[in-house]
Design a protein around this nucleic acid. Structure first.
Lengths: 131, 131
DNA sequence: CTTTTTTCCTATTTTACCACAAGGAAAATA
DNA sequence: TATTTTCCTTGTGGTAAAATAGGAAAAAAG
């Protein structure tokens, strides 16, 4: 599996907030109920989004979350990478990794590079506004 | 990560066998050495390929493995799915799974279906002969 | 028939991550 | 001051990845 609940919930949360924020803030509790996601677990996910500057938070009564920017500025790939780490399909393509000693002779490397490319390109074509 | 060492090793093993089988069998030990893979672990991977009919095995001296068919009849996707299970990017697309109750309202489902499509299409374009 | 080479089989281990659950502290509003 | 919300820490049960260990069974060569 490439995308865990962390990434999927993050996306669903953002879409829900985008759809339900008028001028104010959307409390996590409401989204959790609407989306049928465990409140406590969603907290973990959302906190990560807030730390990444994707969400603005407001505590206390009338508080909650809202998008930090307009929906069309959220690339799906950025959201997912924040939660999942790099979305490479195989370990040998991970950034910041010592180059594989067989990289020049490896018959399969080009295959993985192509796959990585295809996935990245696809996910770059979508923003929150498209959902 | 989408593809684990199981899938990657399987592919490398098959490529190595294809390249090194003349008329006879290629012993696992040799491939393990050439590819720098743990012999014992590679056994597990290869046994799965043999059970799936992708390889023919011969025990004893002069034995080893060879391809059951010509290289161009091995689709990369089939090889990987044998080792990894279904290659879907998210759990909700797993075959034989109860349909998600929100599937009609889900804003993100089409995104995942498209991603799944893109990945499958890419991996269907390659066979062992291409590597 | 014995030795060597190879695949075949079962079990165990280590490590890491996933998907939560629990309980409260701190802030903000009414 | 009471209530609502986010924030923070900690624990937990399950599952999978990536091996490792130790031998049994077959096949060929001597």
């Amino acid at each position: 599996m490439m995308i865990s609940t962390k990434g999927r919930y993050a996306l669903r949360f953002l879409v829900d907030v985008a759809a339900n924020q008028g001028e104010g803030f959307v409390p996590l509790k409401d989204t959790a109920r609407r989306q049928g996601i465990s409140e406590k677990y969603l907290e973990i996910v959302v906190k990560e989004l807030a730390r990444g500057g994707l969400l603005e938070a407001q505590r206390g009564k009338g508080g909650g979350y809202r998008l930090a920017r307009p929906p069309e500025e959220y690339r799906v790939r950025d959201i997912l990478e924040r939660m999942e780490g790099p979305l490479v399909p195989v370990a040998c393509l991970e950034p910041g990794r010592a180059a594989c000693p067989r990289k020049d002779a490896c018959r399969t490397l080009p295959l993985w590079q192509g796959l990585d490319r295809v996935i990245s390109d696809y996910l770059d074509r979508f923003t929150l506004a498209d959902l």
